[in-house]
Write a protein that binds this DNA or RNA. Structure first.
Lengths: 301, 301
DNA sequence: GCAAATTACTTGACTTTGTCAAGTGATTCT
DNA sequence: AGAATCACTTGACAAAGTCAAGTAATTTGC
């Protein structure tokens, strides 16, 4: 079962659940169509029929009749627009507000009931997961932001490095130990005046990282722990991280920047080459249980 | 906006997206109702009308007419049950199979299109998130499993410890550095013959952890890094981890087990007390920027 | 072992919902 | 100022959904 099948399975499962929730509206004595109109008007009073057609994807003729009935039943109030006499602005009457409040309350109760048998933290967990999905699918794309290390970030860097390199590229466990040492050293001994790290994140979701530390020579900075999540690649995020790191190093008085990587990281190497790094050495090594070609790159700042 | 509102917002957003997908079926020349029947029969041939009523939540009269039309159009084949002559078993005809294949293909294409503007890793990310949600909501609850540390786990332990203690309890950054040191030491120097760790997980989701390492005295084990995710609490998971750890220590020839914790961890302390641990000392200390009461507990194995 | 109850489905009569095209005024474009 | 567009309404249907009353097969209860 691939990813798309997983999503399809979720859709079947979830629409069945939502269907149960929808049914809760039906015994309010109003049709689902009317309730949907009430919902929209509660969210944004003054909408016109046209707006509702666009937002609810219903036929305008049908909506017209539906609105007529709702006015007759006292759910909504129609007001001819003063700016444009073709338009009719729609508002909820007090009875409409009341219906909305009741439906919201039922909807919330229904969702709470879905979590009744799950654990206490389940709501938070699901809410976060669904919010993440919504953002990925374009519900409201928050911008990517960059911050210094916050509590938990160091662990995340270690976790994702280990998972990528050991899980996908076949490095052995010694790699994780090495990275743990690098991170522990950084946390314990870093010089905040010249060393720092960046985490790229969207809301609470971490997307990538880069570290700038002192290099082996004087006035030399070293770039480390550079990574962009697979899910966030192709958005020039790596370039932004690299620029932050390089600019910081230059700003702090470093004259060169070096980094070590492996030949197999084509995308990263291409990025280095495009940004003024020069390949200094390239040699086959036996590391982490694999035959690798280790490269060192340098850039004059 | 609380968690339930977040879920409600997702529902609005997601149903709108699914609506677009459903529309794709309509120009197959068949109604959504018929397509839904075809889907179910593809999944489980030989269903009866009754089964479909239950699964699709449709009126049986309407379904009866719909099935009649589908048989006339050559989509399905009806076969009187041999075991019970009241029942009619329903099967897809070759044409029905073909329609199903086409719809599946369109559905998949539609989902793929939803991800067109998102990054390449987005599908995986969303699939995992939705699968997690489905499991939490009871789609198919996988059992919790326990494993030794796998690559990435060490980083996760560090991350979640830092987030819980620094984020929720107000510890300062020195706590994260301390934990990073503990983890680095464990990875580098542990004695696999007597020391190990457990990760509680459901599929790829980590739920908790516990470490058993050598203690300060001879024949003494030490319990460390014990944690259960808030979302997974209340399921006796902590007890299971504790038992694994204690049993291992006893099995490896340790005679006592000690642990250090803070008084504020009521739930954990109660668990220790219930499982044969005895409070050895309790003293106020200034640690991690807070006034805490540090406790040591010991159990005879 | 047989009438009564139940089950699986069908049918008829009906309401609601959805669709399409042809209206009516109001407004904008040029 | 005349044509085009826009916001909405209406009419004529088609499709989908609802409810109750069927029919035949199978269980149940005594």
């Amino acid at each position: 079962m691939d990813n798309i099948d997983t999503i399809r399975a979720f859709n079947r499962f979830y629409t069945a659940r939502l269907g149960v929730l929808d049914r809760a509206y039906l015994d309010s004595g109003h049709s689902l169509g009317e309730v949907r109109v009430v919902f929209e008007l509660a969210r944004e009073p003054g909408l016109t029929a046209r707006d509702l057609v666009a937002q609810l994807q219903v036929d305008e003729g049908q909506l017209s009749r539906s609105l007529k009935a709702m006015e007759r039943n006292g759910l909504i109030i129609r007001k001819r627009s003063e700016a444009d006499a073709r338009r009719v602005e729609l508002y909820l009457s007090p009875a409409g507000e009341e219906l909305n409040a009741m439906c919201v309350q039922r909807s919330r109760a229904g969702i709470a009931a879905m979590f009744a048998q799950a654990g206490p933290g389940a709501v938070t967990q699901v809410a976060e997961a669904l919010d993440g999905v919504q953002q990925v699918l374009g519900g409201r794309p928050e911008p990517v932001q960059f911050r210094d290390l916050a509590p938990g970030d160091a662990g995340w860097v270690l976790q994702r490095h280990a998972e990528h390199y050991c899980g996908n590229e076949g490095f052995d466990d010694s790699f994780e130990t090495l990275v743990a040492g690098i991170i522990q050293d950084y946390l314990r001994d870093r010089d905040p005046a010249v060393e720092r790290a960046w985490i790229a994140h969207r809301n609470d979701q971490r997307l990538g990282c880069i570290f700038c530390v002192r290099g082996p020579e004087a006035k030399q900075a070293k770039l480390r722990m550079f990574m962009v999540e697979p899910a966030a690649r192709g958005q020039r995020l790596g370039l932004q991280l690299l620029n932050l790191c390089v600019d910081w190093a230059r700003d702090k008085g470093f004259e060169t920047m070096v980094l070590w990587t492996h030949e197999s990281h084509r995308a990263a190497c291409a990025l280095y080459a495009q940004n003024g790094f020069v390949l200094m050495s390239s040699e086959p090594v036996r590391s982490f249980g694999l035959d690798l070609v280790e490269q060192s790159w340098m850039k004059t700042l």
